[in-house]
Structure formats: C-alpha cells, structure tokens
C-alpha cells in the first residue's frame, strides 16, 4: 500500500485511510435527508446551548444534565440505525451489551474510585496544602466565554494526556485496549481499561471558579460535539465545524489500523489543538483496530495493562541481568 504523504508522514501505508475532505463520501438520499444530516450537529449544539443558557435555576442542575445526556445518547443510537456511516460498523446486540458494560462500570465503580483519588480530591488536597483559594478570575466573564474556557482548558489537558498515552509506554499500556475496538458506535468512548478511563478524566478545571451554569454549558460542548467522535452516522459535516471540532471522521483516522494514522487527532472535543501542534489529519478510515482487527474481549481488557506490563518488565529484567549464553570454545 502506497499511502499518502501528509507533512513528513506517510498515512495509509499499513491500512486504507481516506485523506482529505473532498475524498470523503457524502450523505446519499433525497433533499430532506441531506438537509437533516448536514445541519443535525449544529442544530442540536445551538439548541442545547440555548437551553442551558436560558433554563431557570431550578432546571439548570446536574440531574437535568444527566437526563438530557442519557436521552441524547439513546436518540443517537436510533440515528445510527437510520443512517449508518459504514455497514461494517453496524451495532449488534452483542456489541451493545459489551459497550454498556463499560458504560456501567463508569457510572458505578469508577465513580466510587474517583471519589477517593479523582482530580477533585487531588486538587482539594493541593489547595488545602498551600492554603489556596479557587482562582476566581473568570466569574465576571460572559457565560459562554467561561464555558469555552472550561471546555478548552479540559480539552488541552486531554490532548496532552492522550498524546502522552501514544508516546510513553506505561501510559500506552492503559490506553491500548481502547484501540482494539473494531467499529465506532456511540458508547465506544467508554470501552477500555478502567485505569485509562480514570486517567483521561483527570482535569485541572477544579483549580478555577466558574459559575455553575457555565460548567453545565461546557458539559454541553462535550455532549453535543465530543459524543460524535464515536458515532456510526454519515454526516455532511459543515466546513467550519470540522475545522474547529473533532469529528467521527477525525476519530476514525485515529482508530485506523494504520500505525501512522493512529498517531493523529488526539483531541476530544476540539481538533484545534491537533491543528496547532501538527497532529491533525483530515480524513476517515473504515478498517479499525489493532493486530489486523482482533476484537479484545472484556476479560483481556481488564487485565491487559498489568499482564503486558509484567511481561515487558520480565523481558527487560531478563535482557538486563541474564548473561548471554556462553559460547563453547573451539
């Protein structure tokens, strides 16, 4: 496979990757379908932002955010069935059960762990140790500016954590199971080893004071933009959207079986950090995963970082301390 040169890298030499927006297929069907799947993403983003901006205080709560978040995801699963990007990513009963198992872990066990060692606890400890108060620089800014700052600060952290995972072996061990997914669906973002899911959720937002409504607005950016990373829906994504935000096209490149392509598009909600730091590749891929598309099962996902880490450490120790086999003298 020849691949395509992007900067000083060859993309698609190991596995097919479509590079460039002009080469990506468009939504097929009548004018209504094309209209819906062109403006779907911006419509829901603006609608949700408007809701959180104007909702009365009694409604602007975390509970409402959870209800909207879950309902929106269920709705998107329905959309996946109506207009799939690839038939080879079709959601099956078994895939849905597997995905929801990881989602369930996130809502239960991981939340309990987070309560003891999550970023909130760490930041509180640091603030207590240095007698710091929260940095309340931003509370006087317009709500949407605050929301943008929260989202950008969190995404900046995620970008580097994610890039670190692809470049530092101990972190890669935690992230590798997520790269064994062979198709994208709404809940695939939750699929992975719990250690990774804990690490990627760490943020420094807790150091700052923001208005609660701004935090809810920032959460909406995650829901109405970040969720599309793992969706199996063909959109005619508007040019401005795909310039600013991470899309399922970008993220499919990141999950490609092509090694070089997988080292790109590290952002979660925003793609601008990738553009800024030279890791963005505009395009899409259908063949996803590792080891030729081997599907990693739940049991292996749970233990992979530890078993692989142990294996690698053992090999290193053997190489370091074992003398080479003696060669008999002639």
């Amino acid at each position: 496979m020849a691949g395509v040169r992007v900067g000083n890298r060859i993309i698609g030499a190991d596995s097919p990757v479509t590079v460039g927006w002009d080469n990506i297929p468009k939504v097929e069907g009548g004018p209504l379908k094309r209209f819906v799947f062109t403006y779907f993403q911006p419509f829901f983003l603006f609608a949700l932002v408007a809701f959180w901006y104007y909702a009365p205080n009694s409604l602007a709560t975390a509970t409402t955010a959870i209800i909207i978040g879950v309902s929106f995801r269920v709705f998107l699963i329905g959309i996946e069935l109506v207009n799939p990007r690839h038939d080879s990513w079709q959601l099956t009963w078994k895939e849905l059960c597997t995905d929801l198992f990881y989602v369930g872990l996130g809502y239960t066990v991981l939340r309990m762990v987070d309560a003891y060692i999550g970023d909130g606890v760490i930041i509180e400890a640091i603030q207590g140790a240095y007698d710091w108060d929260k940095l309340s620089w931003f509370t006087g800014l317009p709500l949407l500016v605050q929301a943008l700052l929260i989202s950008l600060i969190f995404d900046f952290g995620q970008y580097w954590m994610h890039r670190g995972m692809h470049n530092w072996y101990p972190l890669w061990l935690t992230h590798a199971p997520h790269h064994y997914i062979t198709q994208l669906n709404i809940n695939k973002g939750a699929v992975g080893n719990p250690v990774e899911l804990f690490l990627i959720g760490l943020g420094i937002g807790g150091f700052f004071d923001f208005l609660p409504r701004a935090v809810l607005l920032a959460g909406t950016f995650g829901l109405a933009i970040g969720t599309y990373q793992h969706i199996n829906v063909r959109f005619n994504t508007p040019r401005w959207w795909r310039f600013l935000f991470n899309t399922t096209e970008h993220h499919s490149v990141h999950h490609s079986q092509d090694f070089e392509a997988s080292r790109s598009n590290y952002g979660a909600t925003w793609i601008i950090f990738d553009r800024l730091f030279g890791t963005c590749i505009d395009g899409e891929a259908e063949k996803l995963g590792m080891e030729g598309g081997r599907r990693m099962q739940i049991r292996e996902t749970m233990v992979y970082p530890f078993t692989e880490g142990f294996k690698t450490s053992k090999e290193w120790v053997q190489r370091r301390f074992q003398r080479p086999a003696s060669v008999p003298a002639e």
């Binding site: 009963w93 078994k94 849905l96 059960c97 929801l100 369930g104 809502y107 239960t108 309560a115």
Partner: peptide, 26 residues
Amino acid sequence: DKFSSTPALVFAGLFAFLFLVGRFLE
C-alpha cells in the same frame, strides 16, 4: 449517602432487559 446505589440498580435492570431482548432476538 455519599454514594448512590441508583446507577448500579439502573444498569442491573438494563442488563436484565437486554438479556430478555437477546434471548428472543438472537
């Protein structure tokens, strides 16, 4: 309580429902 048992109960119910669906669908 510090921890709510509601999410875990919701997922228990969800998997019971998914089992019933899968038992007939698959």
